[in-house]
Computed example of a mutant assay.
Amino acid sequence: MSGDDRQNEDDRQSELAREHKERQAKRAADQTAKARRNTFIGAGVAVVVVAGGVFAATTLVNREPEKVSAESTPSASASASASTEPSVTPSAKTGPVTCTYKRETSVPNKFVGLPGKKPNMKLKKMTIALNRGNVVIDLMTDAAPCSVNSLSFLAKKKFYDNMKCHRLVTPDVSGVHLLQCGDPQAKADGKNPTDGQGTAGYVYGDENAEIPLVKGVVFMTQAGDAVGQNNSQFAISLSDENTQLDVGYNVVGMVSEGMDILLGLAASGKDLIVNDADITGDGGTTAPKNPVIIKSITFK
């Protein structure tokens, strides 16, 4: 092999090594970004990954909304935007609505029955009475009738009464800012590895899943990249920073009163019991040092 050939071969090997190193760096960056995304939201129905935090209430994936029927039959069309700022536009359903709920027994649950198939389309407001004060939500019932129907049913059954909200995260801890509630089994102590797995023992489909998660948006959570696995858990977005993530979660309404209460729950990670497994997606949740407790939820 001539000197030029050897030089060319050396150059080629160097180029291959450089490309290999770049690929490794890109994979590492992708994994870091994925881990960061996966610290957002989850709720416990993807039983396949119980040990990994995908199921343990700590996962949201960057995803586009899949058109899984919310088990409600009418077609969607645009409707007026919510009355709070920043505004979002729900996709209203027209005509009669029928909801379908499927029993789910393979996860920890507190079963109080299945909601009826016909939602009350007249419900306009949901009030969450917390131990810190009341939070009022303007509902998007026309766009999310089956989600609102489920929440209303559970509230009437006192399912949420005296329940601790198991997850509170701030941007400095996980890159997003939200309060998550609805696990009847949660200890909300920042240590329990199964916090976020509990449900009401049934699941239902997706609807109104094209709303960006701006501050004040209230939405149902489900594990990982699951679709049609909504249950009793819901979250409230506490920052516009959450819009960095793709849409794809059932939005039920917007906070119209009490946002100051929610924003006062935690100024930063110093107000939280940080669970590293929450951040990595290995189970359990970061919780508020000062417990956030739902006294009751009412609708009108």
Score class of each variant (00 low, 15 high):
162 N>W: 02
134 N>W: 12
91 S>L: 15
160 Y>A: 07
148 V>K: 05
122 K>D: 10
105 T>M: 04
114 L>Y: 02
102 K>F: 13
84 T>A: 15
161 D>I: 01
104 E>Y: 15
124 K>C: 00
116 G>W: 06
98 T>D: 11
139 L>G: 02
160 Y>F: 12
136 V>H: 09
93 K>F: 12
98 T>S: 12
148 V>A: 06
120 N>I: 02
97 V>F: 08
132 R>I: 00
82 A>P: 00
142 D>M: 02
150 S>T: 15
126 M>N: 07
139 L>A: 04
109 N>C: 09
88 V>M: 07
132 R>G: 00
105 T>C: 00
142 D>I: 04
114 L>W: 05
146 C>A: 10
112 V>K: 06
123 L>F: 10
126 M>Q: 10
121 M>S: 10
82 A>M: 14
151 L>Q: 10
148 V>E: 08
160 Y>I: 07
137 I>P: 01
157 K>G: 02
98 T>R: 08
98 T>P: 00
87 S>H: 14
107 V>Y: 11
149 N>E: 11
137 I>D: 00
128 I>C: 07
152 S>N: 15
104 E>M: 14
123 L>H: 10
154 L>Y: 05
82 A>G: 15
88 V>W: 01
111 F>S: 01
144 A>W: 03
144 A>C: 03
120 N>T: 11
135 V>F: 12
146 C>L: 03
118 K>G: 00
109 N>K: 14
83 S>C: 01
134 N>F: 08
138 D>V: 10
85 E>M: 13
106 S>Q: 14
134 N>D: 15
113 G>V: 01
162 N>G: 10
96 P>I: 09
141 T>M: 04
155 A>L: 08
99 C>R: 09
113 G>W: 01
109 N>H: 11
112 V>P: 02
157 K>R: 08
142 D>N: 09
96 P>E: 13
146 C>I: 09
94 T>Q: 09
131 N>D: 12
100 T>G: 13
152 S>P: 03
104 E>G: 10
90 P>Q: 08
114 L>R: 00
125 K>P: 00
132 R>T: 09
151 L>D: 08
112 V>N: 04
120 N>V: 04
123 L>Y: 07
115 P>W: 02
98 T>L: 11
99 C>E: 07
103 R>C: 02
153 F>N: 02
145 P>W: 03
99 C>M: 06
153 F>K: 05
93 K>P: 01
89 T>H: 14
83 S>V: 10
152 S>Q: 14
137 I>H: 04
84 T>V: 15
160 Y>P: 08
93 K>G: 08
114 L>N: 03
